[in-house]
């Protein structure tokens, strides 16, 4: 304050508190990077022969084992797509109610909001692979464990996006319904739902796209999908087959992304 009053002509963009906060963030970032660089464990011998290893891997990947696509990779790919679709549907079924409970305008009980928010953060913090390990232990290896793992991990993302959509919805139609004496269920179905429908579909599409990518890795812990084939090929050092699977994943992911973009443009 004193410097501003004594030198009225001098324009300062940020207040001292803002500058201090920015400085603290910069300092924290530099400290984190310096600490990480100084203490990270790197084995130099492994680095020296990295180019050689990459070349070796490249030469083993060529020629690509196209013959294995049918009947080796194709069923695994279909299983992956089923896992992703089922997980998205299941995730929506669980995430949307929690999203409504987390939205402050749809559920006017703060303690319910807090519990719902905690569920959203907690399910999101546990990664898909960790969920998959739990469900493999429960249901045994296979696609069921994989679908449940992705579904539970998606709850957080779907619920968060959805509750934000609900909180942004227009108050007027809700108040009109309330004035007409609508019950809470009617408020949600007739008042909120028509307003958040576009959010719902865009979240569903976006999450489906992510889930296809995620379902490709589930096989590493035995939870079904194309990852099982990938894991087997790597363990058997069949790098030509690994190359085929990687190309398959790439093509499928790109196709689905294009499809999602097309649907977004046309429908939403």
């Amino acid at each position: 304050m004193t410097s501003a009053t004594t030198e009225l002509n001098q324009w300062i963009r940020f207040t001292p508190a803002q500058r201090l906060a920015r400085f603290a963030v910069y300092l924290g970032m530099v400290a984190a990077v310096v600490w990480a660089l100084k203490t990270i464990e790197i084995i130099p011998e492994f680095l020296y022969d990295a180019p050689e290893q990459v070349l070796d891997m490249g030469s083993r990947m060529w020629p690509i084992d196209w013959a294995n696509f049918w009947p080796g990779v194709w069923p695994a790919l279909i299983e992956t797509l089923h896992i992703a679709a089922m997980a998205t549907i299941l995730g929506l079924c669980m995430g949307v109610p929690v999203g409504f409970l987390a939205a402050r305008n749809a559920t006017p009980f703060p303690w319910v909001n807090h519990i719902a928010r905690f569920i959203l953060v907690a399910t999101r913090s546990i990664s898909t692979l960790l969920w998959a390990l739990f469900f493999v232990a429960m249901f045994g290896p296979g696609p069921l464990a994989g679908a449940l793992a992705i579904a539970f991990h998606s709850i957080g993302f779907i619920g968060k996006m959805f509750s934000e959509g609900v909180e942004e919805s227009n108050k007027r139609s809700i108040e009109a319904l309330q004035a007409a004496g609508a019950t809470r269920m009617q408020l949600i179905v007739m008042g909120f739902w028509p307003q958040v429908k576009p959010t719902f579909w865009s979240v569903a599409l976006f999450r489906w796209d992510i889930n296809v990518r995620e379902s490709a890795i589930l096989g590493l812990v035995g939870a079904g999908g194309i990852g099982v084939a990938l894991n087997a090929a790597i363990d058997l050092l069949q790098w030509d087959r690994v190359a085929l699977i990687l190309i398959t994943i790439f093509v499928v992911v790109i196709l689905i992304e294009m499809m999602v973009m097309w649907i977004r443009k046309r429908v939403i």
Partner: peptide
């Protein structure tokens, strides 16, 4: 992991 071996790298 295949390229640079096991570890943080």
């Amino acid at each position: 992991v295949k390229a640079v071996g096991f570890g943080a790298m």
